[in-house]
């Protein structure tokens, strides 16, 4: 199994994308998609990426749900900041927080989540000191943002642990 599909999640995702693009589940499409998924899986093996094994599907679903809620909430918050305009300019600033994640894929996921939610932007991660520098648009109080990042970190640790 491992020799055929070194990255099973990647191969399944590629097959799904191929089927969606072609908009059919005809046998020919599935065959072509499987060939592509297997071949590209081997190509990815040459890149030598870090492997990780996300477990606990239920936890992942709950994490996704939390992120969706956070994205909606921060969308509204950032829209309010922009519409408030020049009367009260945003109180933005840089924050650093210590993050203790060893798994590279978990770090990448954390970076994507933090940048995708409006209001926080990932800037720099120092591997030696394990500290992360990020920028916050509206810093009403710093504790809330640091606690948010810590919450994400705990959830990711549980998923990839």
């Amino acid at each position: 199994m491992r020799t055929w599909f070194p990255y099973p999640l990647l191969s399944a995702g590629l097959l799904a994308i191929w089927l969606l693009l072609n908009q059919s589940v005809a046998p020919g499409t599935i065959l072509m998609g499987s060939v592509l998924a297997t071949g590209l899986g081997w190509v990815t093996l040459k890149l030598g990426l870090a492997r990780s094994h996300p477990r606990r599907v239920l936890l992942m679903l709950r994490f996704g749900f939390t992120i969706a809620l956070d994205i909606i909430r921060s969308n509204l918050a950032v829209a309010a900041v922009i519409l408030r305009g020049r009367r009260r300019p945003p109180n933005s600033g840089f924050l650093t927080v210590d993050i203790d994640l060893d798994d590279e894929n978990a770090l990448a996921l954390l970076a994507c989540v933090m940048t995708a939610t409006p209001g926080t932007a990932w800037l720099e991660y120092d591997r030696l000191r394990k500290s992360l520098l990020f920028h916050v648009l509206d810093m009403e109080n710093e504790r809330v943002w640091i606690d948010t990042v810590k919450r994400y970190e705990a959830a990711l640790k549980e998923i990839f642990g």
Binding site: I71, N75, A116, T117, P118
Partner: peptide
């Protein structure tokens, strides 16, 4: 932070 509004919402 501004373009993330368009790309998410």
């Amino acid at each position: 932070h501004a373009p993330t509004l368009a790309t998410s919402g």
